[in-house]
């Protein structure tokens, strides 16, 4: 347990020490909130959707957590490149614990990033249902764990950062756009709907949106269950790939 904790702590310290990273990664969500929120807001309202900021913000919070957590994989590539990974790999600690520490550390950072976006959205006009905030955080944690494991799994197979960035951007954009984060998917064609339904992020966005702005009911629990299942699967796959890393 203490080893998982020290690995987690290292990740947190690295995050708080690079202020530029924290601030830099807030740019994109902020842009999306302002540009999409104010740009499409009137159209959305005219189409009878209601307040677009209320709809959009949970999606943007999910996006911020999605990108931060997947890009945590880059930490593994840094550690390969700067050699620190060897230090952890020669230690008498199971690979599973190393992977757990890294994943939890990365996920914590990604959840914090999502919460910062929530704070920023308040002056823009977002008014969440504070009562269900703990449930919302639970969904954020699941998104963060799934995609930290996902990013780390990809990173185990990559040797350089540019390749990682290319692949991850290539995968993340469709995941994000086809998750219901920025537009409702009810009216979408069947093929698109199918993709949306196999996208893990969809369930995270749904759960998050229900907790922050909608009504929490039995389907929230269903979504949470799906997220927990996917998280376990991804952490298992990530741990397996991580245990095969040779340097």
């Amino acid at each position: 347990m203490r080893t998982v904790y020290i690995l987690w702590l290292r990740q947190i310290k690295r995050y708080f020490r690079s202020k530029s990273r924290i601030i830099g990664s807030l740019g994109q969500p902020l842009l999306f909130l302002v540009a999409l929120g104010f740009g499409f807001g009137p159209i959305y309202a005219k189409a009878g959707g209601g307040d677009y900021i209320q709809f959009l913000t949970p999606g943007i919070i999910a996006m911020s957590t999605l990108f931060t957590s997947t890009f945590m994989g880059i930490e593994l590539i840094w550690d390969k490149e700067f050699g620190f990974l060897k230090e952890t790999l020669v230690a008498p600690v199971s690979r599973l614990k190393i992977m757990m520490g890294r994943t939890l550390g990365g996920a914590t950072v990604a959840v914090l990033q999502g919460l910062i976006v929530l704070l920023i959205s308040l002056p823009i006009g977002f008014s969440p249902n504070w009562v269900a905030l703990p449930l919302a955080i639970l969904f954020l944690i699941m998104i963060a764990v799934i995609f930290t494991a996902f990013g780390t799994a990809i990173a185990t197979k990559m040797e350089d950062m540019h390749g990682f960035q290319l692949i991850v951007n290539f995968l993340l954009m469709p995941l994000f756009f086809l998750s219901g984060a920025i537009f409702p998917i009810n009216g979408a064609p069947a093929a698109i709907k199918a993709i949306v339904l196999i996208n893990p992020l969809t369930y995270g966005v749904r759960g998050l949106r229900a907790a922050l702005t909608g009504t929490v009911d039995i389907s929230s629990l269903g979504n949470l269950g799906i997220m927990v299942g996917i998280a376990l699967l991804f952490v298992a796959i990530g741990s397996y790939l991580f245990s095969k890393v040779e340097i």
């Binding site: 203490r2 080893t3 020290i6 290292r10 020490r17 620190f84 060897k86 230090e87 008498p92």
Partner: peptide
């Protein structure tokens, strides 16, 4: 114990934190 040919410290941590990290990993 090992000292690798290439560097293997965490540059973003202090000297003490690098040692502490190692000490905890080796329980």
């Amino acid at each position: 114990g090992i000292v690798f040919q290439d560097p293997s410290l965490d540059d973003e941590l202090t000297a003490w934190e690098n040692m502490e990290f190692h000490g905890v990993l080796y329980s």
